[in-house]
Amino acid sequence: MSDPVSALNNAHYGAGIAEVSELGAVGMITLRGDINTRGVQKGAVDVAGVKMPAPLHCVTDGSAGIAWMSPDELLIMCNYADVAKKLETLRGKTAKVHALAVNVSDARAVFELRGPHAREVLAKVAPVDLARDQFKSGMFRRTRIAQVPAAFWMPEEDVIRMVCFRSVAQYVFDVLSVASQPGSEVGYI
C-alpha cells in the first residue's frame, strides 16, 4: 500500500524563538451527535482510550486523545494507521444512537510549537488570552490563526499542538515561522 503523506511532509523551522514543526500524518475521527448521552460518550472513550473531556477541554495521552470541539462534536485522535479499525469499532458502538463518525485524518494538518516562547508566538497570531494563568494545559481552543480556522491545546507547558485544515497547512506553517523569527520576542507573556 502507498505510504500516507502529510501536507508538508514533516516541515520544520528551528531557527527562530520557537520550534515550528509539522507532525506528519495523525489519525483523526470526527464524532458528531449528542455528546452528553452515555452511548456516544462510551463509544468515544472506548475507542480513544482516554477519559471524556470537559467542555472546552481535551484529554490526550501520547497520540491518543479526545477533544471537545463543540456542544455536539468530539475529535478523536489516534495513530494514523489505526484509524480504519477504530472507526469501524466506533460505528459499531454508536450504531444504536443518533451519531456520525467520519475519518478526517487526510483533511487536516497538525503542527507543534515548542520552546519557552511558544505561547508568545501563538499569541501574535490568535485572538486568545494566552497568559499562563488563563490558557492552561488541558484546555482546547478553536479559534483562528491569522486568517484561517485552527484549534490548539497544550499537552505540556511550552508545547502547543495545533490542528488546521490541510488546504491551509502551508499558510499556517509560514505564519508561525514568521511569528517566531529570530529576535521577535515580545517579552510580555
Partner: peptide, 12 residues
Amino acid sequence: PNCGITAEETEF
C-alpha cells in the same frame, strides 16, 4: 451562549 467562550468579534 453555545460553547461559553468569550472572545473578540473577529472570531465571530
